[in-house]
Design a protein around this nucleic acid. Structure first.
Lengths: 206, 206
DNA sequence: AGATCTGTCTACCATATGGTAAGTGACCGA
DNA sequence: TCGGTCACTTACCATATGGTAGACAGATCT
C-alpha cells in the first residue's frame, strides 16, 4: 500500500499533487500552470508528478474526475432533501455555498471548465450529467405540480448555475463593487441570491 | 497616415492585430495565446505585432481598453432609454444580447477578465466603473420609487451580470444541455432570462 | 538627390515548458 | 542474501515562447 512513503506527512503523494493541481488550475488556469511550479510548491521534483500522472493532460483529467465526484456527492446529498420544491432548491444552493466556503478551488475549477475546450470540458460535463438530468427532471416536476413558474427547465438550470457560480467566483468584480471576499460577504451573497431565486421561481410570492 | 500599407485590405495593421488578439484572448485565453500563432493567423511576422505593441502585456491592455470603450458606448446608449424601471433593464439586457450576437468575442473577453489577476482585470473594471456606478444608482432609485423589489443594488447587479454572461458564454454547458449555439437558441435564452429577471425584480407581477 | 522616417522583415537569443531516459536507494518477498 | 519493484531523483532534450538587434524597401521631407 503506497499510503505513506516514510518521510512526508500522512497524505499520499498523488493526492497532494491532485490538491495542488486543483488549486492552481482553478486560480491561475490550466495553461498558466506549469508542472515545474506545481512541483516546487510541493517540494518535489517535476518528474515525481510525471511518475504519477504521465502527462499534464492526464493530470487534468484526474483532477476533473476527482472534482466531479466530490461535486456529485455533495449535491446529490442535498438533492435528496425532502420537502416542497423551493425548500429543495434552497438546500442545493446552500450546499453549493457551503462547498464554496470549504473548498473554493472546486468552484473555481467548475468555472475554468467552461473555458477549456471539448476535451476537458466534455469530460467534466459528462461526469456531472446524471446530476444535471436529476435536477432538470426535478424542476420540471415542480413546474408541473404548479409549485414553480413555468420555464424551460434546462435554461433555468443554466441561469441558476451561472448566477451561483458568478456570485461565488467573480472575485475581481466583487472587489470592485466593494465586497471583500470574506465569510460575512459570503453569507450576504447567499441571502441575496436565495431572495432573488425565490422571487423568480416560487408561484405564490407571499 | 498609416491607414493602408499598399497590399493588405483597408483595415490598418494595428486594428487587425487588436481584432485577432481579442478573438484569441476571448476564446483560448490570454496565456494560451502565443504571439506566433496570432501572427500566423494574420499572415504577418511576430515582430510586426511587437512593433505596434511592444509586449504581449501592452497588447492585452490595448485590447482591454478598446473593448471597454466599445462596451461602454453600447451600454451607456441603452441605459439612456426612457421609460419605467423594467423597460430600461430590458433595454440593457437586449443590447447586451445584441452585442453578443454581433461580437461574441467581446463577451468572451469580459468572461476572461474575471480570471486574469489584478493587473488586467483591475484595468478593465476601472474602465467600466462609471457604467457600474450609473447602473447601480439607477437600480437603487427604482427600488426607492417602489418599482422594484428591494435588494442590495451592487449584489443584484452582480447577479444579473453573472446570469447574462453565463447564458451567453457557457458554450460547453449549453451544448451539453442540448442547446446548440445558434441564433434561434440565442433568442430563446434571451426570452428566458428576461422572463426570469422580470419575475425576480418587478414589484407588481400581473 | 540624399537624408530620414515608417512599417515590416530576417536573424537570433535566453528562458521556460512538457516530456524521455536512466539512475538510486529503500523495502520486500523468496 | 538477492533480485525486483516502488517512489523518487538527476541529467537531458526538443520545442515554443516573449523579446532584442538590426537590415531593408518604400514613402516623405529638404
Amino acid at each position: 500500500m503506497p499510503t505513506s512513503n516514510g518521510v512526508t506527512d500522512g497524505t499520499s503523494t498523488p493526492a497532494r499533487i491532485l490538491d495542488a493541481a486543483l488549486a492552481s488550475f482553478a486560480t491561475r488556469g490550466y495553461e498558466a500552470t506549469s508542472l515545474d511550479a506545481l512541483a516546487a510548491g510541493l517540494e518535489v521534483r517535476k518528474q515525481t508528478i510525471l511518475y504519477w500522472f504521465p502527462s499534464k493532460e492526464v493530470l487534468l483529467d484526474a483532477v476533473i474526475d476527482r472534482s466531479a465526484i466530490e461535486l456529485s456527492v455533495a449535491l446529490e446529498g442535498s438533492l435528496a432533501t425532502a420537502g416542497t420544491g423551493w425548500v429543495r432548491v434552497e438546500a442545493v444552493v446552500r450546499s453549493v455555498f457551503r462547498l464554496a466556503a470549504r473548498q473554493p478551488e472546486l468552484l473555481g475549477l467548475v468555472r475554468e471548465m467552461g473555458r477549456l475546450g471539448p476535451p476537458a470540458a466534455t469530460r467534466f460535463v459528462a461526469a456531472l450529467e446524471p446530476l444535471v438530468a436529476r435536477a432538470s427532471q426535478f424542476l420540471e416536476a415542480e413546474m408541473d405540480a404548479g409549485h414553480m413558474r413555468r420555464h424551460e427547465p434546462r435554461l433555468l438550470l443554466l441561469a441558476i448555475y451561472s448566477t451561483v457560480i458568478g456570485m461565488l467566483t467573480e472575485v475581481e468584480l466583487l472587489r470592485a463593487l466593494g465586497e471583500e471576499p470574506t465569510a460575512r460577504s459570503l453569507v450576504r451573497r447567499r441571502a441575496e441570491i436565495l431572495d432573488l431565486l425565490r422571487s423568480a421561481l416560487v408561484t405564490v410570492p407571499s
